[in-house]
Design a protein around this nucleic acid. Structure first.
Length: 508
DNA sequence: AAAAAAT
């Protein structure tokens, strides 16, 4: 069943102003039907946005009403704007009279799980607040603290941060968080997972108990939902799709290959599908660096992005990729979540991710804002179990296809065949370089139009719920069967593998 | 089988 705001019925948005320049025939609600300050509406229009995406249409009024929110929507559907615009509005409405300029209190805090994502969110918040006097700043690790400190001391109303560096600033008394009124956890389920939880709890301990808290993600397990509940007060669950749903705009393919053929498979698919640009996800930093070097030898313009690179290299790699100067970005899961790369045509899972949730996030780098995208996952026999977990999580029947690598030209030499010394390893790779040299490439960032507002509407799943009561009690059992694989402790899964496999096949 | 986030 469709949500009323998502139908094409003209009556759905009677107040839609005629000046809105949208090509969408569907009468999706426009931002200016909301009680938003003109400064914010102007900033939204500056970004080229007129109509709201479903998560925005549903979450913004709830945030404006001051409620705590747990928000779930597919990747690439505008969650950042869904929380930042109404938060800015509330900050404009309620000037903090107790604000003492000398103490530079932060009024809104947004936490993100990676530095790149924090940076991106900050850029969005700055864009939406540009016509206001509210100041936004971002702090994350890997870069000099001094400029961040100076910015904090000068006074910042909205602070976007990764946890570790924020704690540094708190302890150095650069950031005063005892007057925070709004907290957002972006990629909330990641922020609440075991690796982040201690830092997160420490940060929250510095904040006032009375505040508005917002959690957003495309993935929520019932366990995390329950945990999250303890950080929220009478939260409203805002769901546009079932949590863990993949975007309908992404074509998902699963190819059965041997580990030795994975590189050849990527090259073949890049060629066969005429893919101009792609992210290739790898499970380990070492594998990431190696694969990037390999693609480089194949003549592709390639960069690696992983946590062992300097922050400078990381930001430059991402930037070069966004500008189209790099064909293939080989990454670890540092890039799995949240990053918005306009019109990225394809994502490859060179390795099947260890966590099914990460599959959802990885493929969410493509098919964003209504664009179409391709997600290819390469599956070896050992990965069958992980794929089964993905299937359970996203509740979609996945079909494993064979991939014929008939033409030897696309198969890089095996270790045993490779010429010693690693010189120029084979002319058969030349066609790759030529194809990419021929490819037409957009010179500048490619997205200027407003995001299409209807491709997200065709969900086969339950319509969103928006109620005043915490909904996950009734929701949890129906979403996932008790005992479903991805709810078992990871250790148990690992143990299953350990029992089956000996160290024999571990060499690589 | 891992990655990320402080130095």
């Amino acid at each position: 069943m469709m949500d009323p705001t998502q139908t094409a019925a003209p009556a759905a948005a009677p107040n839609a102003p005629t000046e809105a320049h949208t090509e969408t025939p569907a009468a999706a609600a426009c931002f200016d039907t909301l009680p938003l300050d003109a400064k914010l509406l102007r900033a939204v229009a500056d970004q080229g946005y007129a109509t709201m995406t479903p998560i925005q249409a549903k979450a913004i009024p709830v945030v404006l009403a001051g409620r705590d929110v747990m928000g779930a929507a597919q990747t690439g559907t505008g969650k950042t704007a869904a929380f930042s615009i109404p938060l800015l509005q509330r900050m404009l409405r309620h000037e903090n009279s107790s604000m003492s300029p000398a103490r530079h209190p932060v009024r809104a805090l947004v936490l993100a799980p990676t530095r790149e994502l924090a940076d991106q969110v900050a850029n969005n918040v700055k864009a939406y607040s540009r016509h206001t006097k509210l100041r936004a700043a971002v702090v994350f690790g890997g870069v000099d603290m001094k400029p961040q400190t100076a910015e904090l001391k000068a006074g910042v109303e909205v602070l976007i941060a990764t946890p570790g560096r924020l704690l540094d600033h708190i302890e150095a008394r650069n950031a005063v968080l005892n007057q925070v009124e709004y907290v957002v956890l972006d990629e909330a389920d990641r922020m609440l997972d075991i690796g982040f939880l201690p830092d997160l709890q420490r940060i929250l301990s510095y904040l006032p108990k009375t505040r508005q808290t917002l959690l957003f993600s495309a993935t929520f397990s019932p366990e995390i939902k329950r945990l999250a509940e303890s950080y929220l007060q009478e939260p409203v669950l805002v769901e546009v799709a079932r949590p863990n749903a993949t975007a309908s705009t992404v074509e998902q393919r699963f190819y059965s290959v041997s580990a030795d053929d994975k590189r050849a498979a990527v090259l073949k698919l890049l060629r066969d599908r005429d893919i101009k640009q792609a992210i290739v996800f790898v499970n380990s930093k070492l594998g990431c660096a190696r694969l990037a070097r390999s693609f480089e030898r194949d003549g592709l313009r390639t960069n690696a992005l992983h946590g062992d690179k300097s922050q400078d290299e990381r930001l430059k790699a991402l930037d070069a990729f966004k500008r189209g100067e790099v064909d293939v970005l080989v990454c670890t899961d540092v890039a799995a979540r949240g990053l918005d790369i306009a019109d990225l045509p394809a994502v490859f899972n060179f390795d099947v991710p260890f966590n099914a949730e990460d599959y959802v996030h990885r493929i969410g780098r493509t098919g964003r804002a209504g664009a179409s995208g391709l997600a290819v996952t390469l599956v070896t026999r050992e990965d069958a179990r992980l794929v089964a977990e993905v299937e359970k999580l996203i509740k979609k029947k996945l079909e494993l296809e064979p991939l014929e690598l008939e033409d030897d030209r696309w198969r890089p030499p095996r270790r045993s065949e490779a010429p010693a010394g690693g010189g120029d390893r084979g002319e058969f790779r030349r066609p790759e370089r030529e194809r990419f040299e021929r490819a037409e490439r957009p010179a500048a960032p490619r997205r200027n139009s407003a995001p299409a507002s209807d491709p997200f509407f065709d969900r086969p799943y339950e319509p969103s719920t928006m109620s005043g009561t915490p909904a996950w009690e009734q929701d949890a059992p129906s979403v996932v069967q008790p005992g479903a694989l991805h709810h078992k402790p990871r250790k148990k899964i690992a143990a299953l593998f350990g029992a089956k496999k000996s160290a024999a096949s571990a060499a690589s």
